[in-house]
Design a protein around this nucleic acid. Structure first.
Lengths: 145, 145
DNA sequence: CTTGCATCTGTAGTCACTACAGATCGTAGC
DNA sequence: GCTACGATCTGTAGTGACTACAGATGCAAG
């Protein structure tokens, strides 16, 4: 049925090497090893020579971590989520609580940045931008109350 | 004219010790020493015994740093601002450019966080919050494309 | 068997602090 | 002058979430 295959096919074989994990998830190789060191990812199998070999579950786990990071969850939050999942007795309510807690902190950060934005925009607007050495921005930074 | 004074008065005397600098600017003592180490603050005078003694200019400089940090400027940006000021030939235009550059990065961060906020709020809304072990949030994190 | 890329370990750097430990300074009260 | 006691000193290490090496192997194609 199948002749020689041109590209490598890891799907049913001896597992993915770390570079393939990186390519599939977009997580840097160094970062994958870092996740292992801090216990976010488990220690994978090794080849006879000592190279890491991951299975499909580990690929899914790493994708989970990646997506959670993209949503701004801290590694500690992700660790908590994974512990729930690993325990296999988490409830939807627990996950919801963690998510809304994180959502609140995101909203808080937005509020802080919006204040900054206003202050900076106000300062920039007062500035003549000219070739002169007298600058209201510098004055405000030095002499504000 | 003046008798004994009850509280310490550093305003015209031998300079402020580091604790007084900290109290007046709100910058942590360890942080002040850190700023000195990385060259944001100059090396101050010392007492005979070796304790730091700051003058009024240094107090103003530290306030400048503090306010700039509050506006979200990085220490590298602040270093650039201070170098301009120290050179004493900066122009308003230069300062304006640095400020608007920073403003752009603040706006970028706000945009990123708003996307996160939307995604998180959407996920949280779909969640039943119940006592059940089947959670759409976890499913999305595991199985999203 | 060689070439050459992939992967290995271990360590140090990033940013902006913060937190010690253990020693010394400075000053108020006696 | 002596003693307490808080303030300050130096130097190092920790934080979070990676990233960047150096120098040594592994692995697969030709």
């Amino acid at each position: 049925m199948q002749g020689k295959i041109a590209v490598k096919d890891f799907t049913n074989a001896r597992g993915y090497p770390i570079g393939e994990m990186s390519r599939r998830t977009g997580v840097n190789i160094e970062t994958i090893r870092y996740y292992e060191r801090i216990g976010i990812m488990p220690e994978p199998d090794r080849t006879a020579g000592g190279n890491r070999q991951y299975d499909h579950d580990q690929l899914k786990r790493l994708s989970f971590v990646r997506r959670s990071r993209e949503l701004g969850f801290s590694l500690e939050e992700i660790r908590a989520l994974l512990e729930m999942v690993d325990r296999d007795d988490f409830t939807c309510g627990e996950v919801h609580a963690l998510t809304t807690g994180h959502l609140a902190s995101v909203r808080q950060r937005i509020a802080t940045l919006r204040k900054l934005e206003k202050a900076l925009a106000g300062m920039a607007a007062e500035c003549s931008k000219g070739d002169v050495p007298d600058c209201p921005i510098v004055d405000m930074l030095f002499d504000a109350p």
